[in-house]
Each structure stands twice: as C-alpha cells, then as structure tokens.
C-alpha cells in the first residue's frame, strides 16, 4: 500500500519584493513516518509548515493531508494535526497543567477527557513536578517540553513539530522522542519535524528533506543522503602557521579545500586522502602540520555539500 499523505506544489510570492520563501516545493510523506525538514535559518521551512497548518495560504500548489485538501479547506488543519510552533506566548502565563488541559479543551475534548489526557501526558514527559509552575517562568528547555506536552493532548494522526527540542537537556530530548515513538507505534502517528539540528536528524528521522532557498535540494533517508557525498571522506588539516608551499600533492589539493584560517577541510576520495595523509605526515609538510583528522561523511557533510552546490554553483557531487 502506498500511503500518500501530502503533496505540496507551492510557489510563494510575498508582497512587492517577491520573496519566494517556498519556490515550488513538492514532498510526499508516508503515514507513520518521522519526516524531517532540514535546512539553515531562512530556508523556508517555517513558511512551509505554516502553509501545512493552515496559517498561510499558498499562492500556488496543493496540500493534501490524509486525504483532505488543505488549500481549499484550511480550517480542517486543526482537526487533523497537532502543531507545536516556536513561540509559547499564548501559554506563558498559564501553569503547565492548565496549559495542557486548556489546549485539550480547545482541541474539542470533553472536560474529563482533557483532564485525564493532561495527567497522562504530564506523567509521560516527567512534567509532574512542574505542573503548577507557570510555563513562562520555566527554563527554555522545560518550557519547550511543556508546550510539546500541550501539543500532545488531544490525539491527532499528524504532529507538526517546529524545532521541538531546542534548548532541551538530553533527558527531555529522550522523553520527546520516546513520546513520538510511542504514538507512532500505537496509533500510526505521522510526524513532520522541522529542525536545523543535523545530529538529531540523523538519529530520529526516517526520511529527511534538505530545504535551502525555498527549494528541496534532496529528500531521502539519512543514510542515502550521506551516500550522496559518494563515499568520499573528510580530511581536515590544521597548519601551525601557513601551508607549506612546495609540496606538489598539497598544491593540487589547495584549490579544492575549504580554507578557514589555518584549517583546511577537504572532501575527497579515500585514495587521495591516503596520499595526502602520507604527504603531510613526513618531510616539510609534517613540520608545518599542527593536527589532522580523517572521517567518514556525516549527514552534516551531505547537508553542507548540498547547500554549497546550490549556493556557489560549484560542481556538485550528487550521484544521479
């Protein structure tokens, strides 16, 4: 079964300046998937999410969520999805417990259900000790967790979470991902996650779309995105002062290295890396070398590669 959840084709032209925050984005998210939108600040992730949640109407394109056309019926979005935005101002002056309960009531739950779900969610997230504290007086991570709790009260088949774990400690993060996993296992909940945290994306997401400049640069599993960097490795060389001028292998590599101060970062084939390492660990180059590291590619490399390919029109390393 092919459980298509949503498709966007959006081109968003805003105001007179014609800023295209989303420039023809198309994505399919499958049911029961934890899907990530990864991209730098200003990439258009939040614009995309605001259209999905019915807060913004796309200028063009279509949004289909669980069989509902949300461009024609944006008012259905709140009945299909739970949304965790980046701001907590609406809940700041409520206690954690009342924020969760009120949100449940406003999601249409009867009073008793809202109270029961409130208690269950607070217990699940370990928020009980904070239940009577105002949301606005908690630390950043705790506040985020309290808002996440409110987003969970009143079950929805789709959760849209905009950077849910910002500022959280590892315990809170684990509570968030455990809660997400539980809902996915028990109810087949689909999760759309906005993040610019690459490390988190690598561990929790089933699939990820890299968004940059309002476009989707790539969309695949974290593993396959890493493969986009072609099995190339990352070599970092740190010089004591300057790179030695008269080592031929280095001279050839210098043009392709990303240079930041004394540090060179090179993405290259394992063979060339071996050659370079041999060259810099002997002779005059070794004298000039402060440190070096050799690593297999991470999602961050894929992400940076994709961004760089887009930005500087450099010859990219995308495998067809």
């Amino acid at each position: 079964m092919r459980g298509l959840v949503k498709t966007y084709r959006t081109g968003r032209g805003a105001k007179a300046a014609e800023v295209r925050a989303n420039d023809g984005i198309s994505l399919d998210v499958r049911r029961g998937e934890v899907f990530g939108l990864l991209g730098p600040n200003g990439a258009g992730k939040s614009t995309l999410v605001r259209q999905l949640t019915g807060l913004l109407r796309p200028d063009e394109g279509s949004i289909d969520v669980l069989g509902h056309d949300l461009v024609r019926h944006p008012e259905r979005a709140p009945r299909l999805l739970g949304y965790l935005g980046q701001e907590s101002t609406a809940l700041d002056e409520l206690t954690v417990a009342l924020a969760a309960e009120t949100t449940g009531r406003l999601r249409g739950l009867p009073a008793r259900r809202a109270r029961a779900e409130r208690d269950a969610v607070l217990a699940e997230l370990g928020l009980e000790p904070l239940a009577d504290r105002p949301v606005g007086r908690l630390s950043g991570g705790q506040r985020r967790l309290a808002c996440f709790g409110a987003a969970l009260v009143g079950e929805r088949p789709l959760l849209v979470l905009d950077e849910p774990t910002t500022g959280m400690d590892p315990v809170a993060r684990r509570a968030v991902w455990a809660a997400v996993d539980r809902r996915r296992a028990e109810h087949g909940t689909t999760v759309l996650l906005v993040t610019h945290n690459v490390i988190e994306a690598e561990t929790v997401l089933d699939r990820v779309a890299v968004v940059h400049g309002g476009r989707v640069l790539a969309c695949d599993t974290p593993g396959r995105l890493k493969a986009l960097v072609d099995g190339r490795v990352r070599l970092e060389l740190v010089w004591r002062t300057d790179a030695p001028p008269d080592v031929p292998v280095l001279a050839a590599a210098a043009g392709r290295a990303r240079v930041s101060g004394r540090r060179w970062t090179l993405r290259t084939t394992p063979e060339e890396a071996r050659e370079l390492v041999a060259a810099v660990t002997s002779g005059p180059a070794f004298a000039a070398l402060d440190d070096f590291t050799l690593a297999t590619p991470t999602l961050e490399d894929a992400y940076l590669d994709l961004g760089a390919a887009q930005g500087a029109d450099r010859e990219g390393g995308q495998a067809g």
Partner: peptide, 16 residues
C-alpha cells in the same frame, strides 16, 4: 503582544 509574538498561532491551529 499576542499578535506580535506569534502567540495567536497557538489558537489558530486549534479547532476553536
């Protein structure tokens, strides 16, 4: 304040 800080989004994404 609610409008300026995006707090209205909270209500707008609830079926109220």
């Amino acid at each position: 304040r609610l409008r300026a800080t995006g707090g209205l989004d909270h209500y707008a994404t609830l079926p109220v």
